[in-house]
């Protein structure tokens, strides 16, 4: 159980840069909790506070009963932290890194091998290779193994999938799902909205403020606009035309489609006719279910 209440943190000489502006949320036992927001939203600051690396200006965070400010020694026993940047010793080998972190927590690889077995087995063939010489995906697996080796109650993963290829990303989330079965609370931040569905609950944050906290489905259910996807061959020209149309509230390029929210009175045929009149003959318009990203955009507008 993690209870975060009204966390504030600002940087700079006179506190000019507000990184966190009153964040509160709760995480239930055994959940994968996703903190989702664009770069600069304050995700890393939040996680560094929870990992007891920096102190908040105000507010409290209680993790499994321990306060991150007062009981920081205890916090360090029960958390596993994996920073966004690869931060293991590049000049030590895979096995040496793992053994090193196990020793710092006064445990051994053998003792908690069952926890990391799934993950570590994939890099074990390279255990004598220096960590600096591993590929990105392997580095990430090693970092996760090192964060897990002392059997933490809470795992804090700061943007673990940034810069990782789609296949490895999927693999990584599968690993997290298996860890969840061990009863570890997993806090994970990401800038990729499509990863939200892999979490039990998510918090959307932007500019240091929480804009929504719910299950991914709950967030989608709260979405009240009518959402259509428009596709065609000249996307940017279509987008320009759509933005001129007064019955369309918002329009955003979304991969190879344009997502638009529209006034209730607008019919698909009407919009299609409008575009055909402007010489866009091959357009397709379909109502769609919103994604978390649509919700994020709607909530931040």
């Amino acid at each position: 159980m993690i209870e975060v209440k009204d966390l504030h943190k600002s940087y700079g000489k006179s506190g000019k840069i507000n990184a966190l502006n009153g964040i509160s949320f709760n995480v239930n036992d055994g959940d994968i909790f996703g903190v989702i927001g664009p770069d600069g939203a304050g995700k890393s600051t939040l996680f560094r506070i929870l990992a007891s690396l920096i102190m908040p200006d105000s507010g409290t965070a209680i993790m499994n009963g321990y306060d991150v400010v007062k009981d920081y020694r205890k916090i360090r026993q029960i958390i596993g932290y994996m920073p966004g940047r690869f931060s293991l010793y590049q000049d030590l080998s895979v096995e040496e890194n793992l053994k090193f972190f196990a020793t710092l927590f006064d445990t051994t690889i053998e003792e908690n091998y069952h926890l990391i077995k799934d993950i570590y087995q994939q890099i074990e063939p390279f255990k004598n290779r220096r960590a600096g010489a591993l590929s990105g995906g392997m580095k990430q697996k090693l970092a996760l193994s090192c964060a897990l080796i002392h059997k933490p109650e809470i795992l804090i993963l700061d943007e673990p999938t940034t810069g990782v290829d789609p296949v490895s990303r999927k693999e990584f989330w599968d690993m997290l799902a298996r860890l969840k079965e061990q009863g570890i609370i997993i806090l994970v931040s990401t800038a990729y909205m499509d990863e939200a569905s892999r979490c039990d609950r998510i918090a959307l944050i932007r500019e240091g403020e929480l804009i929504a906290s719910n299950t991914p489905q709950g967030i989608i259910d709260d979405y009240s606009d009518i959402l259509w996807a428009v596709e065609g061959s000249r996307m940017s020209a279509i987008l320009r035309e759509l933005r001129k149309y007064e019955k369309i509230k918002t329009s955003f390029a979304f991969g190879d489609k344009i997502h638009i929210t529209v006034d209730e009175s607008l019919q698909i045929g009407e919009l299609k006719q409008y575009l055909i009149n402007r010489d866009f003959r091959d357009v397709g318009i379909n109502p769609i279910e919103p994604t978390v990203e649509d919700c994020f955009i709607a909530l931040t507008n």
Binding site: A51, S52, L53, R73, R76, Q77, I79, Y81, P83, S87, L88, F101, L104, F105, D106, C146
Partner: peptide, 8 residues
Amino acid sequence: IQQINVTP
């Protein structure tokens, strides 16, 4: 150093 600092 971050990894070291989060250890006891």
